[in-house]
Structures are given as structure tokens and as C-alpha cells.
């Protein structure tokens, strides 16, 4: 008696199949769609700083983000559905990330990776966007400076959880958030509040 079952053991007999109907399963369309979307995210990497190095480590063999369905890095926004901003974003790059976000087709999500992308980090200066949420909508913020690959993977699984909770009948989810006539994506008061100095950076006024 070998450990491997023989082909004859695995093949079902006619008698076994007699009472079985053709295979089907019941589910909701939402569950099926969300299952597909959550497990085949194609990320568009927007790496500008050291977070991008951690992002590369996440994509490489040791941490292997392909395990979560992110098999293919999409270097074209038109074939991507997840924008990962890995690193600080200067004002000079703001129109570029905005353009990339506008070029991505729905459904799309974004991850703000690291302290600088999420809040400006230590760079509370004239040149730096204080959080990319003043430029594009953000789904998941990953803290860290830079976050370890485990942190980014946790952020990705959180995003997958969020996607699984979506429903196709909610029209607000797929609404494009475009820059308005005044040139703002968020109201200016809100941008000022989001960009307020916090933590150590409130003490950085000596040379102001």
C-alpha cells in the first residue's frame, strides 16, 4: 500500500456521481465582484523617497506582495487600480500625482505610504505638500518613517477589507473627485486645517 492514492482511487464511480447535481454556488454579485477586486489589485507605484525602497522590498521575494494578488506592478495609470504614494510629495509633483490619479480608471483606490505622504512628516516647509489627501482622496494611511514591508502589507490587507465591504449600488463610491473651478480638490479652509503644524513641527518657527 503506497502513500500516493492511485488514479483509480481518485476517479469517482458512476454510483457516487448519480445523486450529485451539476456544480453551482450561490452568492451576491457584490461579494463576487469585491472578491475579485480585492484579490487582484494592480498597484501603480508612485515612489519618490525612501518609502519606495521599502515598497520594492515589499514587492520582492522575501515579503512578496504577489501573495495578495498584486502580482503585476502597473507602470501605466490606465491599467492600475491602486495608487501607492511612497514618499514625500513636493508641490512641484502635486499636479503630476493629480494627473496620474485622474488617468486611473474606476474602480480605484489609493494608499498613502509613510509619514511624509500622509502628513508632510518632518518636511513642514515651503516646498512640501502637507499630506497627499489635500491633492487626491486617500483610502488607507500607512504610518512609519518609512513603514516596514509588514506595515505596507497590513495597509494592503486593510484596503482589501474595505473593498470587501463595498456595494455596487452605492453611487458615491465611484464618483470622480475632480478639481473644482477655483482649482481646489478640497475646500481651502480644509486644506489649511489639514496642513496645520503638529507635534515637533509647532516649535519650528524660529526662522519664520
Amino acid at each position: 500500500m503506497g502513500l500516493t492514492p492511485s488514479a483509480a482511487d481518485l476517479t469517482p464511480t458512476d454510483a457516487e456521481l448519480a445523486g450529485v447535481s451539476p456544480n453551482f454556488l450561490t452568492t451576491t454579485l457584490d461579494a463576487l465582484t469585491n472578491w475579485g477586486r480585492a484579490n487582484s489589485l494592480w498597484p501603480m507605484p508612485f515612489g519618490t523617497a525612501c518609502c519606495a525602497i521599502e515598497f520594492m522590498a515589499t514587492a520582492a521575494g522575501r515579503f512578496d506582495v504577489a501573495r495578495f494578488g498584486m502580482e503585476r506592478m502597473s507602470f501605466s495609470p490606465r491599467q492600475a487600480d491602486l495608487l501607492i504614494c511612497a514618499g514625500r510629495l513636493p508641490f512641484k509633483l502635486a499636479p503630476i500625482i493629480r494627473r496620474i490619479w485622474d488617468q486611473m480608471p474606476q474602480p480605484k483606490w489609493s494608499i498613502s505610504m509613510g509619514a511624509c505622504a500622509s502628513s508632510g512628516g518632518i518636511f513642514d516647509t515651503y516646498a512640501m505638500v502637507q499630506g497627499i489627501d489635500t491633492i487626491i482622496p486617500v483610502d488607507v494611511y500607512v504610518p512609519g518613517c518609512p513603514p516596514r514591508p509588514e506595515g505596507l502589507i497590513y495597509g494592503v490587507t486593510m484596503l482589501q477589507k474595505k473593498i470587501r465591504g463595498e456595494t455596487m449600488v452605492d453611487p458615491t463610491l465611484r464618483r470622480e473627485t475632480e478639481v473644482d473651478a477655483r482649482g481646489f480638490y478640497l475646500p481651502p479652509e480644509k486644506i489649511d486645517v489639514l496642513s496645520e503644524p503638529f507635534g515637533n513641527s509647532v516649535h519650528q518657527t524660529r526662522s519664520a
Binding site: K92, R98, T125, Y126, A127, F184, P188, D192, P197, S207
Partner: peptide, 27 residues
């Protein structure tokens, strides 16, 4: 001119104005 000592660290304009001007730029 940002590296002048009379230039405030966060710039002269509000963050909202800086964001508006940045988004209006044509890359």
C-alpha cells in the same frame, strides 16, 4: 527666494493657496 533668511520656513502664502497654485501648474 526660499533660502533667504527673511523667507519664512513654510513660505509666504497659506497652504491652501500653495496647493491651488501647485495644482494649476502645467507639468
Amino acid at each position: 527666494h526660499p533660502l533667504r533668511k527673511d523667507f519664512p520656513l513654510r513660505g509666504h502664502f497659506t497652504r491652501a493657496e500653495q496647493t491651488r497654485q501647485a495644482l494649476a501648474a502645467n507639468p
